[in-house]
Design a protein around this nucleic acid. Structure first.
Lengths: 148, 148
DNA sequence: TACATACATTTGTATATACAATTGTTGTAG
DNA sequence: CTACAACAATTGTATATACAAATGTATGTA
């Protein structure tokens, strides 16, 4: 990605600002490619993330606040994200019997199979995004990102 | 930032996916801190970016499509972003006399002075975000990000 | 038991963004 | 000179998101 072309300015940009701008641009690119890959499957990137988290639960239901902890979005949106997944039949929501304030979200069979179809699309997108990277690059990048 | 806590799952996440998730999380953090820093100034991060680009023009006006090239947002939003900056009196828009399809956007004196106040707030935010990084780290990070 | 407080989720509302269609302008082939 | 394609920006509309307030439930304490 050619940042210089986008950042172009006569005066030198300090490396701190440059890095942050660079990160936004990269993130935007990732987002676009992922979203495009998911479009044929009719889910947004956020909806995909919810499904992926639920699958990681291996049958154990997740309640909204734990889902929320592991997402970038705000609580109020998590509710509505789940609403949309329910409409699609990919998850179901039941009131938690032991504590009726909580809800339990589960991925459905239909959701699992839709998710596994998305996996291949997403994997292709990832490869497209990361084809310039060696494993060492990725490791180094993760180490650096951890400093945030 | 503790990604592991957020990504947590029993099965190993492949490094490619892990990196991309990590990047989203970092970007979200950056975005939040920047937005918070700008809030007292009453502009969004995107509006701030427009002002910063215009300042880089050093008096030369920018038309919408060049603004757009250098932003992550879509054209239709650029129009509305500029609308909001006009309402605040930070920029003005005139139809380009040589080609009346184009418009010319300029930063106003008021916009310049508002921008310089934002600069200090943003600089603090940047330092807060990057205080774990050495200059070498930043350089390395930029090199890696360029591979996208 | 009654009351205040904390918790988990949901709803209302304003704002932001994406995508497609539209407007107005310029360039150009016949 | 006209018709048509290309260009630059704008508008309409649906969806997404943030923030604050509201709902319903549980817990602690007098």
């Amino acid at each position: 990605m050619n940042v210089e072309k986008i950042i172009k300015t006569e005066k030198q940009i300090p490396i701190a600002s440059r890095t942050l701008i660079h990160l936004s641009l990269v993130e935007a690119k990732i987002n676009e490619i992922m979203t495009t890959a998911l479009k044929p499957h009719g889910v947004s990137l956020q909806q995909f993330n919810v499904l992926r988290i639920l699958r990681g639960q291996k049958g154990k239901p997740a309640n909204l606040s734990t889902l929320n902890e592991r997402m970038v979005t705000k609580m109020s949106n998590t509710t509505r994200l789940v609403d949309k997944l329910i409409l699609k039949g990919y998850v179901d929501r039941v009131v938690c019997p032991s504590n009726r304030r909580k809800v339990e979200i589960n991925i459905t069979v239909q959701g699992e199979s839709a998710l596994s179809e998305m996996d291949t699309a997403l994997k292709e997108a990832e490869e497209k995004l990361l084809n310039n990277f060696t494993v060492e690059d990725l490791t180094a990048l993760n180490v650096l990102l951890d400093k945030f």
